[in-house]
């Protein structure tokens, strides 16, 4: 788990908009609830395949969900 993750994400907001629990989102993404929590709290940056799955689930491009703080 990348503790020094500089990536911010809107996963919690998007999940709340749909009134989903972490377990609900975890089930839809086929990951553990701990994984959802780790991504939401910025303790872990998801792999590209998982980021694409998240993007497809919320029907948004990846860059709308994940924001790299260090980009120019």
């Amino acid at each position: 788990m990348a503790e020094e993750a500089d990536m911010k994400n809107r996963l919690k907001v998007l999940r709340a908009e749909r009134n989903w629990s972490q377990a609900e989102l975890a089930g839809r993404l086929d990951v553990s609830r701990q994984a959802v929590n780790a991504i939401e709290t910025g303790k872990y940056d998801p792999s590209l395949p998982l980021a694409f799955r998240i993007g497809r689930l919320f029907e948004r491009p990846i860059e709308e969900i994940f924001d790299d703080e260090h980009h120019d």
Binding site: L25, G27, R33
Partner: peptide, 19 residues
């Protein structure tokens, strides 16, 4: 879902619970 499964409300949580 993409695989044609009915993914209504609570589907994800039920799937996580079953897992």
């Amino acid at each position: 879902t993409e695989s044609g499964v009915d993914a209504g409300e609570g589907w994800g949580a039920a799937r996580a619970d079953a897992k």
